[in-house]
Nucleic acid binder design. Structure first.
Lengths: 164, 164
DNA sequence: AAAATAATGGATATTTTTGTCCGCTATTTG
DNA sequence: CAAATAGCGGACAAAAATATCCATTATTTT
């Protein structure tokens, strides 16, 4: 058994430790947005510290991501005492997940080739082009139709969770 | 215009440059497997150099990935002159994409939580749990049902491409 | 048996992503 | 207008992914 474990450890020395759908930055960005939206529904601003605690993320790194979302006009940020992050009524009703993802990760996940080929298209498809077509389209449609508001409402109702 | 370009450059200094579905290692691994399978259908072994050229990947890095696939018993490797990589008849008929992906990237893409939460499940779902359910299932099903052989046949027919 | 060939394994280097630190700026409150 | 608060921006640090180098091992050919 011990030998087996060591073997497996050795086997994975060069390969990625974890591969997920979005980057960590994007995961934090989505979680933070949902939390900020939830509080904005109650007309509350939230500080960086509060956000980081609520979504269990590193504070300084989260700060960078919120800056990015703020520059992308998805959230508002205000300095000084009583300052913090918020989402205005218009954004609350209109921000889709796709906007957050493209502000942080870009559009590669559902636009790029699954095998990383630069020139992969209908005329010159990679071997997985057809197989991925519907999956990418579904992902795209889902991100473009899901509003942050709807997600924050479920969160507020205690139906979903942002931590751990 | 110049100012605009500089602004955009600055804005993305902290975020990922590119986020794709699979790791680079896995992309190379899938492409290499399809190429090796194509040649194995003609009872030909291929060298590392030939593989790297065919799929346009860094040779030394590709070597590591082929080692991993070899250790995972997905491909065979033989040393010495006339040596190289190949896939035996049994593997040719049975290897699914899912086997290559889990040998390199693991199962996180379709098993893990889209928002990176460790304990995300039906009882305690993240805000995107339901939205991602069918997408992850579709991805899983596709990877588990697509054979490398079928992909290599399309490649041989000139219907698909592995480069650029 | 020697030479040539091709993969292997370990060490190391580079690049990207993730994460931290800290002085600065803007805003509010007293 | 001074003090306190909270985000901003730039530099820096750590960790992970990607990539390279080279000596060694196994195999085949001569």
């Amino acid at each position: 058994m011990d030998i087996f474990v060591r073997y497996l450890e050795k086997v994975r020395t060069f390969a990625p430790e974890k591969v997920e759908m979005f980057s960590k930055a994007c995961e934090y960005g989505i979680r933070a947005s949902i939390y900020i939206a939830e509080k904005s529904l109650l007309d509350k601003r939230v500080s960086l510290k509060e956000v980081a605690q609520a979504i269990n993320s590193p504070e300084a790194y989260t700060s960078k991501i919120l800056q990015q979302l703020s520059r992308s006009a998805i959230i508002n940020s205000d300095k000084g005492p009583t300052g913090g992050f918020s989402m205005d009524k218009y954004m609350l009703n209109n921000v889709k997940l796709s906007m957050i993802v493209s502000a942080i990760d870009g559009d590669e996940i559902y636009k790029g080739c699954a095998l990383g080929l630069e020139k992969c298209n209908e005329k010159m498809p990679c071997p997985l082009h057809d197989q991925f077509k519907s999956i990418r389209e579904d992902l795209k449609r889902m991100l473009e139709t899901t509003t942050v508001k709807s997600l924050s409402l479920n969160l507020e109702k205690g139906l979903t969770f942002l931590k751990r």
